[in-house]
Structure formats: C-alpha cells, structure tokens
Simulated assay, not measured.
Amino acid sequence: MPRYALVTGASSGIGLALAEALARRGRNLILVARQRDALESIAYELAQRFGVEVLFRTCDLAQPIQLSGLLHELEQSDYLIELLVNNAGIGQHGAFIEQDWSDVQRLVELNMLALTRLCHAIGGAMARRGQGQILNVASLAAFQPGPWLSSYCASKAYVLHFSEGLRVELASSGVGVSVLCPGPTRSAFFRKAGMNLNNLAGSKLVLSAEEVALLAMRGLDKNRAVIIPGWRTRLLSRLPRLLPRSLTRLISGRLNRRVALNPP
C-alpha cells in the first residue's frame, strides 16, 4: 500500500517549503490547495527533482462540502497517509467589528474547523493503524492576544492548545502530534493579509520559508511537541508568560495596529 504525506496549503510559502523538504527526504506527497495550476506545476517539479510520487487535489478547505468530498475520496482510496501536515490558513487584520462577517467565517472555517476535521478523520485512521504523525501549523501569534488581529491570533491559540491536548490523547496509540509556531516568515502570507512588514526588513527575526521547513523537519525527527523555529522566536514566545496580561495586550495591540493598518 503506497504511503504519503498530505500537506495542505501546499501551493506557496511554508506549505510549499514543507512539501519540498519532505520530497527531498523521499516522501511521496498528496498536495492540497485551491490553485490547480500551481499545484500541477509543483507536483510535476517535485516528482522530477526528487523521484517521488506527487499527487494533488484541488480543494477549498474552508468549504465544508469540498472538504467532505476530499475526505470521502481519501477514505475510499488505498492511500496510506503516514504524515498529515495542516498548514492551510489565512490571516485577517483590522478592527474585528469592521470586517465582513463572511471573511471572519472563512478564517474560522479554514484555520480551525478544517484542521480539526482533518485531524479527526486522518488522525483516527492513524490511531487505528497504530502509527502516524500530525504536524499542525500555528504561529508565534498563538502565545498572546492580538488586538487588530484578534480572530487570527485566537485561531492560532486554538491550534496550539488543541495540538498539545491531542498529542497526549494519541500518545498511547502510536501517533505523534506536533505543532509548528513560526514567527514572521518571508512568504506571501502577510501580503495576502494586507499587512506591511517593511519595519522588519532585514531583521534576523524574519526567517525564510525554507529555513522554517528545515527546522520543522528537525523537530519532527525528535518528535517535539511544540516546534518554534529560531532562538529569537522562542524568546518572544516566552515573554507573554513573564509580563502582566494587561501589558501584553497593550504591546501586542500597538505593534499589530502599526503593522496591520499601514498600507504596504
């Protein structure tokens, strides 16, 4: 039975870098994203470069009907998914009450509900087999409240805590669960979210997607519960535990307002 790593949000950024890092290690892939043309090109390139089998499925994971269709296909196939990488996610900036509800709902559906459903379905199959790994992608934003990024930060806090809880629940079944919490990363994510990171240009805090993927692979090899790429990012993740919550909210709000509300 063929074995695969399934990567969501694989058409760009950290998802693409993770897919390449896995292909480099000889892993067969199932790539999932909305952009068919991009996926087709990426699948062909990775298969040619690394000699692995790369399948792709076009799916908008924020649409429950499409997600159900994907899961049904996987259940009916003979694909054995030994690694699930839940990377797909979106960010949304600005004052919460001024955002279109449809945009907020999409963020919730994609960042939390789709990830949870994939963990339930594919993680359940892994547990029944007695082996497998899950890597959920959260963010440095998971460690503190984020005014003007309230929905995004809350969704990533959910991913962090959900993953840590699931890790304990599945430990006895032979399934490992890790959560990746990258800081600012050079990718299209911030541009798509309408955020301006010019103030961080050249900062050593900002890693490339390839660096994040490499450190994620090392963390997976060691079966780490929480993978935070870069010592600077790890330091920042600890600060909210040391500062009063009121001060954490104030600092986070000021930084997010400045970054999110200035046009790129």
Results as ranks from 00 to 15, higher is better:
residue 4 Y to H: 13
residue 5 A to I: 10
residue 5 A to W: 08
residue 5 A to M: 07
residue 5 A to R: 13
residue 5 A to Y: 07
residue 6 L to W: 03
residue 6 L to E: 01
residue 6 L to G: 02
residue 7 V to Y: 01
residue 7 V to D: 03
residue 8 T to K: 00
residue 8 T to S: 02
residue 9 G to S: 09
residue 9 G to F: 08
residue 10 A to Y: 05
residue 10 A to S: 15
residue 10 A to L: 08
residue 10 A to E: 05
residue 11 S to E: 00
residue 12 S to I: 11
residue 12 S to H: 15
residue 13 G to T: 00
residue 14 I to S: 05
residue 14 I to N: 01
residue 15 G to I: 14
residue 15 G to H: 13
residue 15 G to Q: 11
residue 15 G to L: 09
residue 15 G to E: 07
residue 16 L to V: 12
residue 16 L to G: 09
residue 17 A to Y: 11
residue 17 A to N: 13
residue 17 A to M: 11
residue 18 L to F: 12
residue 18 L to W: 12
residue 19 A to M: 10
residue 19 A to T: 12
residue 19 A to F: 08
residue 19 A to Q: 08
residue 20 E to N: 08
residue 20 E to R: 15
residue 20 E to M: 06
residue 20 E to T: 15
residue 21 A to Y: 04
residue 21 A to H: 02
residue 21 A to N: 09
residue 22 L to N: 11
residue 23 A to M: 08
residue 23 A to F: 10
residue 23 A to V: 13
residue 23 A to Y: 11
residue 24 R to D: 05
residue 25 R to I: 11
residue 25 R to W: 08
residue 25 R to E: 13
residue 26 G to F: 14
residue 26 G to H: 15
residue 26 G to V: 14
residue 27 R to Q: 15
residue 28 N to V: 14
residue 28 N to F: 12
residue 29 L to M: 11
residue 29 L to E: 10
residue 29 L to P: 15
residue 30 I to L: 15
residue 30 I to P: 04
residue 31 L to M: 13
residue 32 V to D: 06
residue 32 V to L: 02
residue 33 A to H: 01
residue 33 A to T: 14
residue 35 Q to W: 04
residue 35 Q to V: 00
residue 35 Q to G: 07
residue 36 R to V: 12
residue 36 R to G: 03
residue 37 D to I: 06
residue 37 D to G: 09
residue 37 D to F: 02
residue 38 A to I: 13
residue 38 A to R: 15
residue 38 A to W: 10
residue 38 A to Y: 10
residue 40 E to Y: 03
residue 40 E to D: 07
residue 40 E to A: 07
residue 40 E to L: 02
residue 40 E to W: 03
residue 40 E to T: 12
residue 41 S to C: 01
residue 41 S to H: 09
residue 42 I to L: 04
residue 42 I to K: 07
residue 43 A to Q: 07
residue 43 A to R: 10
residue 44 Y to D: 03
residue 44 Y to S: 06
residue 44 Y to G: 01
residue 45 E to S: 09
residue 45 E to H: 00
residue 46 L to Y: 06
residue 46 L to T: 08
residue 46 L to K: 00
residue 46 L to M: 06
residue 47 A to W: 02
residue 47 A to I: 04
residue 47 A to F: 03
residue 48 Q to L: 05
residue 48 Q to R: 13
residue 49 R to W: 03
residue 49 R to Y: 01
residue 49 R to N: 06
residue 50 F to K: 06
residue 50 F to C: 02
residue 51 G to P: 13
residue 51 G to T: 09
residue 51 G to W: 01
residue 52 V to L: 02
residue 52 V to D: 02
residue 52 V to R: 04
residue 52 V to S: 03
residue 52 V to M: 03
residue 54 V to G: 05
residue 54 V to M: 02
residue 54 V to E: 01
residue 54 V to W: 01
residue 55 L to D: 05
residue 55 L to K: 14
residue 56 F to W: 14
residue 56 F to S: 06
residue 57 R to I: 11
residue 57 R to A: 04
residue 57 R to D: 03
residue 57 R to F: 08
